[in-house]
Design a protein around this nucleic acid. Structure first.
Lengths: 196, 196
DNA sequence: GTCTATAGCCGGATAGAC
DNA sequence: GTCTATCCGGCTATAGAC
């Protein structure tokens, strides 16, 4: 806590997080992060051994941020259906960024999938956390095969994001979000029918 | 046709096409393409002024290849529902590549979205060709708002691809493909009900 | 802990011989 | 048309002064 460097370290991670999203991991240079923070390039190696170490820190940050957001949703919302709807609504809340740069997690995962096996595995961590949370909510809703449902939800959100970003089509994003919410509500209702 | 260089030019484009898919556009160097073809780096500039010109040629190749494939489907299949199912089945036919590197069009679009505005617009062209073809098929099926249906289909395929690639999950890919086909069949049937 | 200077490499692009 | 040699710049990473 008292360490001076912890502040600089966090500023590097925060800037890298933004730049990895806007430009991609490979296309973000130490110079870019230096320009954004005012911290000299050479100084980075005091906090991180390699660029990949910065990536690790960014992935951990994103995972922690998501887990925080999801816990907030759990605190504020008792109904699992409404919780999942709030997750989906992130597409609307962040629509400007999504149209411009896609999904921070999905686009990074897509980029890292083309790298070394080491890199490929790292990108799963954030998705895993969200998937697990969504699965728990589906399960609480009484949905069978909640893991499958969680994957379907994530796939839906990713697909909408890829196409909306490719065509810069906010109307498609909004329409798909409505249909996604309908699908979630049907999931919640159909479990009643099936369990009857 | 008699030009000697046309052969080399095509070999460069074909190698770039593969490499852009496996490693990404930015992460593919002239050296990589040279290694794959045996053609010296410096020679590339006889056929292309810049790396972006190679990208243009690759995008045109992919568009042409898709248009060819879709025309083949039209020739071999009279029923628009079965045509769309054959389009979806590309997820199965190319499942190994998809698990390893994602969708050639989607992943490139995601990468280029983080580049200059010039690059962003180019990636739309291939998607546009497939979307238009799918829209025609939905329309022939009697589906209302066929453009929306085409976007939904592409988004579904992209979402499945992103998640299947991220988790290297072939079972999810297969399951989602079955559900996608069911959705297509429901679309085909529901239009009868609505028009009755 | 902070910063400058620079090594060492590799990228896209060019010039010009053959 | 084909190929070699090379320029110039940017990259990650390192060394070492302060």
């Amino acid at each position: 806590m008292g360490k001076k460097g912890e502040d600089n370290r966090q500023r590097i991670i925060d800037a890298a997080d933004q730049l990895f999203f806007k430009r991609g991991f490979n296309q973000t240079s130490f110079q870019d992060i230096s320009d954004a923070t005012g911290i000299p390039r050479g100084n980075f190696y005091y906090y991180f051994k390699t660029k990949e170490d910065i990536l690790d820190a960014v992935l951990q940050l994103r995972r922690d941020m998501f887990i925080d957001s999801l816990k907030q949703i759990e605190v504020n919302t008792g109904n699992p259906l409404e919780r999942l709807i709030k997750l989906a609504d992130m597409l609307d809340v962040n629509s400007d960024d999504i149209l411009a740069s896609g999904c921070p997690i999905g686009s990074l995962s897509t980029e890292l999938a083309k790298g070394t096996k080491d890199l490929q595995e790292k990108s799963q961590v954030v998705f895993q956390a969200i998937k697990q949370w969504a699965s728990v909510q589906f399960s609480a809703m009484g949905v069978q095969r909640s893991d499958d449902a969680a994957m379907d939800l994530l796939a839906w959100m990713q697909g909408v994001t890829v196409m909306a970003c490719a065509f810069k089509d906010v109307a498609f994003l909004q329409r798909s979000l409505q249909e996604l919410k309908q699908w979630l509500k049907q999931k919640a209702h159909s479990k009643v029918v099936e369990s009857a």
